[in-house]
Design a protein around this nucleic acid. Structure first.
Length: 116
DNA sequence: CTGGTGACCATTA
DNA sequence: TTAATGGCCACCA
């Protein structure tokens, strides 16, 4: 079987990584790229999320930019939709940004000590 | 083919 | 804080 880096395979890896982001957590495009074996390919993550097939359930809204901001036009309905879906999981935008210290996804880190 | 654009990012000024 | 720059590269006119 052809294993390599075709565009569709890269999308598959990206979608799989995004599906692993726990509820209540968020990850940056760059982190998703790295975790998918595609370092420095943050832009591809944006493209992959834009191309998620209809009907496929992927938590695309848990992906935001490295500054903790939503990477969609403020005036668009898409922005409000993402903000709403995040809020439903307890992730609120404070000053237009997500508190990454609290909601940033860290692979294999125990959430023992609670940060207030 | 070329050039512009974009759900990005780190660095520099 | 904002702005510019270079890297990355799929996609489209």
């Amino acid at each position: 079987m052809g294993r390599g880096d075709t565009l569709s395979e890269n999308y598959q890896r990206i979608w799989k990584t995004v599906s692993r982001i726990p509820k209540g957590k968020v990850a940056s495009y760059g982190l998703v790229a790295s975790c998918s074996g595609l370092p420095r390919r943050a832009r591809l993550v944006g493209t992959a999320l834009r191309n998620v097939p209809p009907g496929v359930d992927i938590p695309w809204y848990r992906v935001i930019n490295a500054h903790g901001r939503i990477s969609l036009p403020r005036s668009s309905g898409a922005y409000e939709r993402q903000r709403s879906l995040l809020a439903k999981e307890g992730i609120l935008l404070v000053g237009g940004k997500v508190d990454l210290k609290r909601h940033g996804w860290k692979k294999g880190r125990k959430s023992t000590s609670a940060r207030l």
